[in-house]
Design a protein around this nucleic acid. Structure first.
Length: 489
RNA sequence: GGUCUCUUGGCCGAGCGGCUAGGCACCGGUCUGCAAAACCGUCUACUCCGGUUCGAAUCCGGAAGAGACCUCCA
């Protein structure tokens, strides 16, 4: 069943028509967060990108099962498979149970994803809840001769694997290069080759996160969970696997190797990777310490922020760039997004103010088709937004009397916004609440006084009312009928 | 060092060989008592050097700069 959706498949480096394996069912797996720190802007990008994909596939009439995991064990400090588990480290630092760390940051993640209006995935599996599945996967890999045990740890044998399969097909890595490039790392490893990766790590006495296995007490390697859980919930072959570009290598490359080593099958049909958010041209990342948490962003509490930005401003900002482009953070860019989004919502709220005519000078259907084309072209949300601004202009012009809408246009317009802005792109009209009823009445009273003052030509009085209300954060708009106002957030 | 990617107007960002998005800012006009909002208009960019082509921001080659991955990161 063709739906004309084309997506860029990282594994072939080109756009391909999306054809579901078992239509109308679509399976998506996306790498979720490792819950050892507060969610930051970088987490928002894949969450929103794949949320839009999820929403759009549903919009197209598919039955989508969207799996996004929580990594709560096994993610080591560095991928030489040495060092500490990130969560265990945090737990020791704060003198709490690892699962308390996991619970806290999982809740935080959910809170902020809700604020960004990111839909909950169909299934949100945790690595620690799938230890058995991971151990079974190790059995398979070992049985097929692609793993070896050393001192209670089990490693994936990349060399053995690459004799039969192509290791590096996703990332374009060449094994020979890996030999020369990684050999310089410390030689005390248990691994045959430095590019081998852990499937299971022996737990040292001080490790608090540990599970029994026939190799002894230990914990699973980082890449294993995604292979185990995606297979469990989506099958040995499924449609789309997504994640950040930084996970391409080694994480996703290892996932492919593990799955192929275990089942002999290519599990994933379409690989999708979102690009990074940069700040001052540099990747915003945990390790660089230049990240801005979502809490800081929404509250404005960060040295580089000149003000707070609302969740929808952030969502709109992210959607204004294509997901495969880097997106540079700056106050100017955020402010521009904020104003643009406000204007768009304002237009939507004003649709009913249009006085319909018999004739029509606008073509909403044409714009609708352009929006669909844009989404079908690898989820090109910036083009969708550009087209929607055409409609914004149409609406404002119609109110100003320079364009004409007929009755159908009004309905088309509302449908367009409902489908694309709210439903597919998941934006929400943040109603800058007009406070309570008393406030509302008081402001109306003052503004009516102002109209009286204007009638008396007492402009000093009318300007004073306007200026003081403005100073209090109330935005006043004079209209032919009288006035409009709203609280400025 | 290896692999890969990017370089667009004041800023952010589309673009995938001709029709030269969009947002924000700026400037002029309309509206207004004056503003704000809105509308109309102006501003017209593609890092550099070669090449292909009737025609290139878009394709090819080279240079410069930036970034990502090769270590945890979305």
């Amino acid at each position: 069943m063709s739906q004309n959706l084309h997506i860029y498949n990282t594994i072939n480096r080109k756009k391909e028509e999306f054809v579901a394996l078992n239509p109308p069912f679509v399976g998506i797996y996306v790498c979720g967060p490792t819950v050892y720190g507060d969610p930051h802007l970088g987490h928002a990008r894949p969450a929103i990108t794949f949320d839009v994909l999820f929403r759009y596939l549903v919009f197209l009439g598919n039955k989508v099962r969207y799996v996004r995991n929580i990594t709560d064990v096994g993610h080591l400090e560095n991928d030489a498979d040495e060092g500490d588990d990130k969560i265990a480290k945090k737990a020791r630092l704060e003198q709490i149970e690892p699962m308390e760390v996991v619970q806290y940051y999982t809740d935080r993640y959910h809170t902020f994803m809700d604020m960004l209006n990111v839909k909950k995935p169909s299934i949100e599996p945790r690595a620690s809840g799938h230890i058995i599945e991971q151990l079974l996967l190790i059995e398979e890999i070992e049985k097929n001769g692609f793993a070896y045990e050393k001192n209670g740890s089990v490693y994936f044998d990349v060399e053995a694997y690459s004799k039969k399969y192509h290791y590096g097909k996703l990332s374009g890595r060449v094994l020979e290069d890996l030999y020369s490039n990684t050999r310089s790392l410390d030689g005390q490893s248990e691994k045959k080759n430095s590019f081998d990766f852990a499937l299971w790590k022996k737990a040292l006495p001080e490790h608090i996160m540990r599970w029994p296995s026939r190799f002894g007490d230990g914990f699973p390697g980082w890449h294993l969970e995604c292979s185990a859980m995606s297979t469990k919930y989506l099958g040995e072959e499924f449609d789309i696997h997504g994640g950040g570009m930084d996970l391409l290598f080694p994480h996703h490359e290892c996932e492919i190797a593990q799955s192929v080593a275990a089942s002999g099958k290519e599990t994933v049909r379409y690989w999708m990777h979102n690009n990074m958010i940069t700040i001052n041209g540099q990747k915003m990342g945990k390790s660089l310490g230049n990240f801005i948490t979502l809490e800081e962003l929404f509250s404005g509490q960060h040295a580089v922020l000149t003000k707070a930005y609302s969740p929808m401003t952030v969502r709109f900002f992210i959607l204004q760039a294509h997901y495969r482009s880097t997106l540079d953070f700056s106050n100017e860019a955020l402010t521009a997004a904020e104003k643009g989004f406000e204007r768009m919502i304002e237009a939507y709220n004003n649709i009913d103010k249009i006085k319909t005519l018999d004739n029509s000078t606008v073509n909403i259907q044409d714009i609708r088709n352009k929006c669909l084309d844009a989404l079908n072209d690898d989820l090109n949300t910036p083009i969708v937004i550009a087209n929607l601004f055409e409609v914004v202009k149409n609406i404002n012009s119609a109110i100003a009397g320079t364009e004409s809408f007929n009755v159908e246009n009004i309905a088309e317009c509302k449908k367009l916004f409902d489908d694309f802005v709210f439903n597919i792109m998941g934006l929400v009209a943040e109603t800058s609440s007009s406070g309570n009823e008393i406030l509302s009445n008081v402001v109306d009273l003052l503004l009516n006084e102002r109209i009286e003052a204007k009638k008396r030509k007492d402009f000093a009085a009318s300007d004073r009312i306007r200026n003081e209300l403005t100073a209090l954060g109330i935005e006043i708009k004079d209209t032919k009928e009288g006035f409009e106002w709203k609280l400025k957030n």
